[in-house]
């Protein structure tokens, strides 16, 4: 399958004046945000700050109330846009893994390749095995999700997203549901992805990961972007009171 070639100067994700209300509750109040090609952007902030909602708007799991979202230059808020096609280019990893419990690991990795990308069985299996190898679970291809630890499930979920050969990956608090001793394996896989040049938007509470792997850190609070910049600046020398208050609690 051939994908249209991307121009390097165009941001992978560009969000303009994004607002999102849940009823009377304003969760996002005019967000301007972008992720460049090959960039790793970590979004941090207190719970309820709207960071997960922002991420979920990028592949339209949430319907924006107003504003525009461009993914590789395509306006995904336009009703004429083929959302399913765009979504095959955006990998997503959930806090709760959301593996398909009725399918084994290989089934989880091949289902969407076959149904959405229309790949043949042999090709889908080959891609799946390559990605299982990448996340270090080549020996568990016949296991069912219930037989895996949380950390293994999340790595399978990452491999499932990668099997669509996405141009970018969205991570929604990927380690928040894990036992502490299992967090490292998942972060290791994410770090490896970043090293390979994957475009990543990561909503996380892992400040160490944001500092070491992030190209840029975005701090959100109360539905707005308060502060952003290089990790060492935002985390090491925050300029805003709200950033300082948040970091003093989590660091």
């Amino acid at each position: 399958m051939t994908e249209p070639s991307l121009s390097q100067d165009r941001p992978a994700i560009e969000v303009k004046e994004l607002c999102k209300n849940f009823g009377d509750n304003e969760v996002l109040k005019g967000i301007d945000f972008h992720v460049n090609q090959g960039e790793v952007v970590c979004v941090i902030g207190p719970s309820g700050s709207g960071k997960s909602t922002l991420l979920r708007c990028v592949n339209r799991l949430e319907e924006p109330t107003s504003g525009t979202i461009l993914v590789e230059g395509v306006d995904i808020t336009d009703p004429e846009t083929d959302l399913d096609k765009i979504r095959t280019r955006i990998g997503m990893v959930f806090q709760q893994f959301n593996l398909f419990p009725h399918l084994n690991v290989l089934g989880n990795l091949t289902l969407a390749q076959r149904r959405a990308k229309r790949r043949g069985k042999a090709e889908a299996m080959e891609v799946a095995r390559q990605n299982l190898e990448k996340v270090g679970l080549a020996n568990r291809e016949n296991a069912y999700p219930a037989q895996l630890s949380g950390g293994q499930q999340q790595r399978v979920a990452i491999a499932r997203a990668l099997s669509m050969n996405p141009d970018m990956m969205l991570f929604d608090e990927p380690t928040s549901a894990l036992d502490p001793e299992l967090v490292g394996d998942v972060l290791g896989v994410m770090r490896q992805l970043a090293d390979e040049g994957m475009t990543m938007m990561v909503v996380t509470h892992e400040m160490g990961f944001a500092r070491e792997v992030g190209d840029r850190v975005v701090f959100m609070d109360g539905g707005v972007v308060v502060e952003q910049g290089k990790p060492e600046d935002v985390l090491g020398n925050p300029q805003h009171e709200r950033t300082k208050a948040f970091l003093s609690k989590v660091l």
């Binding site: 799991l61 399913d84 979504r87 997503m92 289902l111 149904r115």
Partner: peptide
């Protein structure tokens, strides 16, 4: 669970395939 639908849709599967295979 709703997360199952979200996972399937985020992988680019259309509503019919999501219903039938997930």
């Amino acid at each position: 669970p709703g997360g199952q639908l979200e996972a399937a849709r985020s992988l680019g599967m259309n509503p019919s395939w999501t219903m039938v295979s997930v």
